[in-house]
């Protein structure tokens, strides 16, 4: 997981949650990585997964992706930061 102590705009709970949740549903947990992009006004969390795991993360009609977003945003409340979550191909 990303270093939670760097900077004051690192949503450490959101990142930990996003990593945990994503790793729980993919074939290759080690292939999951989350990067934090806080260059814009909103903090964006970019998730990459191993080749072939994207389908699992998105789910049918994006249901899984939406569920992951919902839960991660809830965790971000703990950080006091609003986040967007992007699944990067």
């Amino acid at each position: 997981m990303s270093d939670p102590d760097v900077g004051n705009r690192i949503p450490s709970h959101a990142v930990a949650t996003l990593e945990h949740v994503t790793r729980s549903v993919v074939d290759d947990p080690d292939g999951v990585s989350v990067s934090v992009d806080d260059t814009d006004s909103r903090v964006q969390l970019n998730v990459t997964v191993a080749d072939g795991d994207m389908g699992r993360v998105i789910g049918k009609r994006g249901r899984m992706a939406n569920a992951i977003r919902t839960v991660t945003r809830a965790a971000a409340v703990r950080d006091g930061i609003e986040v967007d979550i992007e699944f990067v191909d």
Partner: peptide, 24 residues
């Protein structure tokens, strides 16, 4: 409360992911 969310929205999402994790 954060794990529950408005209208149980977060709870339902967690349940969905949990189901998926088990299915996996």
């Amino acid at each position: 409360g954060l794990l529950i969310g408005p209208g149980l929205g977060t709870l339902d999402s967690v349940q969905e992911i949990c189901r998926n994790a088990i299915q996996h």
